[in-house]
Simulated scan of single mutants.
Amino acid sequence: MYLQSPLTTSPGTALPLDRQQAAAAVLQLVLLGALTTAAGLGPAGWLAGIGYAAGLHALLAGAARRARTEALGPADLVTLGRAVLIGGVTALVVDGLVAGQLALVPLVALASVALALDFVDGRVARRTGTVSELGARFDMETDAFLVLVLSVQVAAVTGPWVLVIGGLRYAFVAAGWMLPWLTGSLPARFSAKAVAAGQGIVLVVAAAGILPVAAAVVLVAAALTALLWSFGRDTLLLYRRRATL
């Protein structure tokens, strides 16, 4: 997902950022209401969903302000829609953990659509000429949070070690606060993108319960191994480049 360039309003987008975010907040409430009717979403799910929406609003507004962005472009709106779906996933996971009963079908459906749309926003950005560094970061953070939430759900079935998948990226960022060389730029690699995309797909399959637990454990362990390899390779490359920082 890509945010618009500084001090510009994206082509074909009439609403300013605050109205776009307000619309997203309304859609989030509508989705939570639909999940209440269709899946019995309880108070814990509502609290999680509303808390998520408030955090998304604050973080996106702050990022756009620092980038001097006045409105989201077409691709940005795709990712904002993905973010709303992830709010529904978050609400379902939290509600399932508290109530002890997960609404599996809507969770898998919402997560699957959110993952599928991840292949759309980048193409839209390139076709509309609205690619930006901040937009790419927004997309990455959206993906990372979905993986984190899904890892929490899968961990409830396969064991807490799965949380490493969701937490590794955040641990890497935290380590960068103490080791500045970890914040260096990395070359774009297809393998890294494939590994990152695979985490969400594997976690959705594991969460769906369509595999025996033993098979799900093997599949998730393979995904974690690939993720550790990808992060390890990036860390080694950044370490070798640290003298230039």
Rank of each mutant, 00 (worst) to 15 (best):
A111F: 00
A171K: 08
F172G: 01
A175E: 08
A221Y: 00
A215N: 02
A109D: 10
V157F: 04
T130C: 12
V162L: 11
R240K: 08
G62H: 01
L238W: 11
R68N: 13
G88V: 05
G88F: 08
G42V: 00
V213C: 07
R240V: 07
D18Y: 14
I201K: 02
T13H: 06
V26Y: 12
T235K: 02
P6E: 09
A208L: 11
G87T: 05
F119L: 15
A34N: 08
F190Q: 06
A99P: 06
A215V: 15
P160W: 15
F138G: 01
A144P: 12
G51S: 13
V205N: 00
V154M: 03
G88K: 03
A188E: 11
A206W: 03
R241G: 10
L31Y: 03
A222V: 15
Q153F: 09
G176Q: 05
V154A: 02
G81P: 12
T130D: 07
D76V: 01
V213N: 00
A54S: 10
G122P: 03
T90K: 07
A207W: 00
G88E: 03
A83G: 08
G166W: 04
A67F: 04
R65S: 15
P187T: 06
A34Q: 05
W181S: 11
V202I: 10
T36F: 07
T142L: 02
L17M: 14
D118A: 04
L236N: 09
Q101S: 15
S112M: 08
G40D: 11
D76K: 02
V147N: 07
Q21T: 06
D143G: 12
K193Y: 00
T183V: 11
P74S: 15
Q21K: 13
G122C: 10
V94E: 06
D234M: 05
T235C: 12
A91W: 02
S151I: 00
V84R: 01
V89Y: 01
T13V: 15
A223Y: 01
R123C: 00
A208P: 04
A196S: 11
A71I: 01
G49H: 12
G62R: 09
A125C: 10
L72P: 00
G45A: 11
K193A: 15
P187K: 13
R123I: 14
Q21F: 06
V98E: 11
V94W: 08
R127E: 12
L72V: 10
P16F: 10
V30H: 14
L41Q: 09
G51V: 06
A44V: 05
D234F: 07
G232F: 12
T225P: 02
A243V: 13
Y52C: 01
L104N: 04
A22F: 13
I210K: 04
T90A: 15
L47V: 14
T36E: 05
L228E: 00
T244E: 15
T158Q: 04
A155H: 07
S5E: 12
R127G: 07
G12R: 14
M178C: 08
Y239N: 09
L163P: 06
V93Q: 05
P160N: 04
Q153G: 08
G45C: 12
R169M: 11
A125V: 12
S230H: 02
L92I: 02
A222L: 15
A38G: 09
G55P: 06
A103S: 09
S185W: 09
M140P: 06
L3P: 01
L228M: 13
Y2C: 14
L117F: 07
W161E: 13
G232C: 03
R82Y: 02
